[in-house]
Design a protein around this nucleic acid. Sequence first.
DNA 1: AACACTGGCAACCGCCCCCCA
DNA 2: GTGGGGGGCGGTTGCCAGTGT
Length: 298
Amino acid sequence: MGRPPCCDKIGVKKGPWTPEEDIILVSYIQQHGPGNWRSVPTNTGLLRCSKSCRLRWTNYLRPGIKRGNFTEQEEKMIIHLQALLGNRWAAMANYLPQRTDNDIKNYWNTHLKKKLKNGGNQDGVSSFQSETKGQWERRLQTDIRMVKQALSEALSVDNLSFSTDSKPSQATTYASSAENISRLLENWMKTTPELVTGGGGGGTNSADTVTQGSVINGSSSNEGAISGETPPPHQRFDSFFSFSSKSCHESVTAEQQLNAGLMTPENSVVFQDEIKPSLGDQVPLTLIDKWLLDVGLF
DNA sequence: AACACTGGCAACCGCCCCCCA
DNA sequence: GTGGGGGGCGGTTGCCAGTGT
């Protein structure tokens, strides 16, 4: 017998996610945190496969995701990481915390692959590949060993500080996800104004039912833990948006620091609980910086 | 203005790895 | 030690918007 599918194919919805589904998912993760994906569809009532929920979260709703054009720095980073790591998109995403592996993969396949093919030697990448890749792999192995040791010591301290201060950090992190869906919500509210104007006219469609039943209740119970009261619907959505400016600011700050080489993914407040501690797979950003400096990129 | 083509991106699929009983 | 289940990852697909003819 083969392995059963992760979810029943019957009754599982496929295709693009609706804003309502996004809200349900984010609301659930705000309360329970990411993980245990198998239980997500059951507990939320989402007619989605657990994998689909995880992908939607990691690729779109996850906090701190930067969308839009890749910067030149990011592009160079991807090119070099691809040369170094191959098609290990998830590992590459560790060095570009604001980009998802899917984003990086798509960008590589649609832009960079073509660019390198047409352009040939871009920014010395080809010569780097032929001349220094082997050398870098050796240095990387050495670095990884050193860093593993140093980080394991450091993390034993960091974990203590994280555990004592995990709540605010988590709140900030999940708040940022609201920023990601806020744009969707804004569009959604434009198209379905009756849902968020306090039930002005009608508002008896299925979307309203879903929103009132699953999302608002979930959201309010979550916020109730903070504010202790249930605001009216439009204020509850406002509170979703109210996260945006702060988290956006933090996100930009983190980005600026990352770009300036002042902050590594490991000590970023925004991403610290999203970074996987798979030390064997990744090298701290400072090493990449060093490498980029060595090859004359910065 | 209408149609065809192309590129970009979100989402799905299936394999693999790791953890736990 | 082993098998099953869950999660992660990379490859691929399909839809949609933009652009060209």
